[in-house]
Amino acid sequence: MEEVELESLFERRESVRLTQENAVFSKSPGGLISLTLRHPESDKPDEFFERVIPLRGFPITDPEQFISIREPDTKEKGRGAEIGLIYDMKEFDQATQELIRAELDRHYFTPELLKIYSVKEKFGYLYFEAETSAGPTSFVLNNPYSNFRTFDDERIFIYDIDGNCFQISHPEKLDKASYRRIEIYL
């Protein structure tokens, strides 16, 4: 076997730290994120990625740090390879932050429950009617006692029967009537 061939078989891109200097994020015409990656240290030409996907390393406790920027997970590309890592969103300008944050929020879609209109129990299932940060919705919980997750900072996650997730970041700020509807499950 020739050495060269073997090398090329196991080629894998090297993930870099992304900063204002080497990464230019822009909104693609389709409303998604594009990335131009510069290689200031070497004389490699700029790379352009039509679409990149941001992922959070610590989605629950630290949503603004360690954002992995990857290629999409499609049939022809396979599991998206990591292009680079953003250590802290603050290292980027406001517009970029907003662009990435919007996409992240889409990815970790966890609407905030603003108001709980009703919680009805029927045959052991809980039927919720609620107003969320993403508009009004209704959802169903089976096993309510296992599907409420409370964090140390009082935040509450509610997982519904479909695998969707809703959150209440400040239970104490929820109006009394709404809070009372869920209190006993906490």
Partner: peptide, 11 residues
């Protein structure tokens, strides 16, 4: 061309 689905955590 080549339609695909992005599977996110909850969407």
């Amino acid at each position: 061309e080549r339609p695909y689905i992005d599977n996110y955590t909850t969407s």
